[in-house]
Amino acid sequence: MSPENVGAADVRTPQDARAQAKADKAYRKALRPWFKKKRFVIPLVLVVLIALGSQLGGGSDAGTGTGAAQSNSADSAAQSDARIGTPVRDGKFEFTVDKVENAGSTIGTGPLAATAQGKYVLVRVDVKNIGDEPAMLDATSQTLFDSQGRKFQAVTEFGALPDAQKVFLENINPGNTVSDAPLLFDVPKDVAIDRIELHDSMFSGGVSVSLK
């Protein structure tokens, strides 16, 4: 080969250099082992993380955190057909609804008297602490539902009732029961009550009891 031909063959433009670099990169990528490629690595990492999450979740205490919420939700579904007089459980408490009363539009006397926007409905429940520590019933975490699916939160005017201390700053010790605890709701006068959802706290899954 003549010197003129050698010099001509070695001359490369910047475009040629970039094209050669891309070709080299593609070649190295094609030779890379399958387990180092992103399309295999990313799904593999996701599978490992999901498996670890399942293991950690399955080993958690059913009485705390996410495990408790899942357990409470399952309990609620299993006991959705419960009625007045049927014991049901949520978290640390076992509830038994005793009766439902139409309390009228006014409750209490003197400075503690309260007037409803519509009318008051009073649901009385027995509450047993089935846990290992003292626990306080939060009246305002309880909810009532009507036949239209509307949700009513318990009101704080229960303080006007003579036995309000049963649900106000009153700890229930393990194994003990508070009877006829009053849960008060302010609802429309023409409401058709359907069910109550009872909670051991505002964070629990709750359990439903039919009031029909």
Rank of each mutant, 00 (worst) to 15 (best):
A51W: 10
K166T: 11
A103E: 01
M202W: 11
K38P: 12
V191D: 11
L161I: 04
D146E: 02
I107A: 02
D16G: 12
F152Q: 10
D200V: 04
T13D: 11
K151P: 02
S204W: 02
G63V: 01
R12K: 14
T156V: 11
A62S: 14
N72I: 00
H199P: 07
V187R: 08
G159T: 15
V167W: 03
K128T: 12
R124Q: 13
V121T: 09
K99Y: 08
A114P: 02
T64G: 03
K36L: 13
N72A: 15
D10W: 07
S179K: 15
P174N: 05
D138M: 12
V45Y: 04
R12W: 04
A19G: 00
Q153I: 04
F158P: 04
D132P: 02
Q117D: 12
K92T: 01
I107C: 09
L184P: 09
P3L: 13
P43Y: 06
A139Q: 11
G205A: 00
S141M: 03
K37E: 03
A51K: 03
A23H: 10
Q117P: 01
N129P: 09
K29C: 02
Q55D: 07
G57V: 04
V187P: 11
V47N: 00
F93L: 05
Q55G: 14
G85F: 11
R18G: 06
A17W: 09
I107S: 06
Y120F: 15
G149P: 03
P174W: 02
P134F: 05
V6E: 12
N72V: 08
L31K: 13
V178E: 10
A164F: 14
V167P: 00
G57E: 13
A82H: 10
F95N: 05
R39C: 05
T177A: 01
P3N: 15
G104V: 13
T86F: 06
G118Q: 14
L183E: 00
F168M: 11
D180T: 03
Y120K: 07
V48M: 05
A135H: 13
L211R: 13
L183S: 03
K36N: 12
V41Y: 08
R83T: 13
T143D: 08
V187L: 08
D146Q: 06
L49T: 07
T143Y: 14
N102W: 05
L211V: 03
P188M: 02
A9F: 11
T140Y: 00
V178T: 14
Q165K: 07
H199Q: 04
F158L: 13
V125G: 14
V121G: 07
V191S: 14
L31Y: 00
H199D: 06
V123A: 01
D24I: 12
T140K: 06
Q20R: 12
P182V: 05
R195Y: 04
L31W: 03
P43Q: 08
E133L: 13
K37M: 03
N176S: 10
S71D: 13
A23F: 02
R89S: 15
P111R: 12
Q153S: 15
I130L: 11
V47D: 03
N5D: 14
